[in-house]
Computed example of a mutant assay.
Amino acid sequence: MKTSRRSILMGSLAALLAPVAVRAQTAPPALAGSELPPGLPQPDETIDLWPDGLPGGENPALTETVIERSRDRLVTDRAVYGITNPRMAVFRPRKPNGAAIMITPGGGYKWVVVDKEGYEVGRRLSALGYTVFVLFYRLPNEGWQDGANVPLADAQRAMRLIRARAQDYGVDPERVAAMGFSAGGHLCADLGTRFDAGVYEPLDAADQLSARPFLAAPIYPVISMTAPNAHPGSRALLVGEDADPKREAAHSPDRNMPEGAPPFFILHAEDDPVVPVENAVLLRAALKAKGIPVETHLFAHGGHGFGLRKAVGKPVEGWLDLFLAWAQAVGFANRY
């Protein structure tokens, strides 16, 4: 079902009129005792997705843990797992352009990357006027009852909350996009194809809103859950190593393409040694078969997980400019 301006605006009004208790929000993931590099703004604003408790009252015995993978004290490369309080870290621009982007970082569904595919992209986009929400979503193999759908439930809820609070951020509730990387690219594509899937029971007025993004931008994404194209680690953690063909298909976005999917921007490197480029090709083919607008960029060299920092000095370095130009062409926002 396509996003309806009337449904979004009416839903936003309902959400605004509903009584909302003032609650302290959970701080962004942090590494205790660590000294952060100077000159890198850290988000201090978050939005809890489930302030009244997780759907179904689930409460696995998890401890949120942040690790530092970088050996350079001037460059952080944190990752977080054991997330029981999924939330968004917010990057507000000085001059909002009215468009918002929700980022789902990668991490192979083993953890969620904080810096490389989260904060670094968030800072760059917010400097250009976009309001950015970096989503720290629950991981599928950490004891949740419906583990394979837990990341999607968080992504749907996040999109709806952004729209419900659009007025607070100077955002047009229609112009909310999704961007994701690697396994986060799978989540981005899953949201772009299964935005209407009932993966949790509605809780409040925000859940009356559409979870369909204005556009979806999966970057070097995991797509297929079927060998030989599946990323083994993501597949094992999302659907299980013994998943049958039906379960594989249910969680492969290329095999769940609806007529009303949003426009897609797909980018991948052909020499990716982790996630085969065929994932991007399969997704593009599925979009074309349904007549969904799609922009695709395949680079000969780039590898995997380049984000912004590892793209420097390579032809793929300009990938964000390509995205911004395309976003302008489809009416999402001005480039600058």
Rank of each mutant, 00 (worst) to 15 (best):
M102S: 03
P41W: 08
W50E: 06
W319R: 09
P93I: 06
V294I: 13
P218L: 12
H186E: 03
I67K: 05
M179C: 04
P262G: 07
P60V: 09
N85T: 15
Q156I: 07
L322M: 13
F265P: 04
A230I: 06
P60H: 02
A79G: 07
P43A: 15
G180A: 10
K288L: 15
E248P: 03
P19K: 01
E117C: 07
Y137L: 03
A286M: 10
H304N: 04
R94G: 08
I47V: 14
D254R: 11
T84R: 15
L135S: 06
R255I: 01
L267Y: 00
A153Y: 02
V281T: 09
F181M: 05
D72H: 05
G122N: 11
Q167F: 10
A79E: 14
D168A: 10
A327T: 04
K116F: 04
W326F: 12
G192M: 07
Y137W: 01
A155P: 06
A230H: 03
I47R: 12
E259P: 00
R212T: 01
R165M: 12
R6H: 08
P140Q: 03
E68S: 10
Q328W: 05
A89Q: 10
T3R: 06
L238C: 05
I223T: 06
A148E: 15
K110Q: 14
A300W: 02
D52T: 10
S224N: 02
N229Y: 11
H186W: 01
A178M: 15
S210V: 11
A289I: 08
V274G: 00
V316L: 11
G57T: 11
D242T: 14
K310E: 12
T26G: 02
E35D: 11
D146C: 04
T76E: 10
L9M: 14
Y119G: 00
L40C: 07
A300N: 05
L191R: 06
K246E: 15
R212H: 07
P228G: 05
P293M: 03
A249G: 09
R5Q: 10
V22C: 07
R212A: 12
T193Q: 03
L187N: 04
R73M: 10
V90L: 09
P43S: 14
F214R: 05
A243C: 14
L237F: 06
L215D: 00
H301T: 10
Y200G: 07
A166T: 09
G33D: 04
K246H: 06
R235W: 00
L287Q: 08
R160K: 14
G53L: 13
V134M: 13
V22I: 13
I223E: 06
P105G: 05
A14S: 11
M179R: 09
T226M: 10
F195T: 11
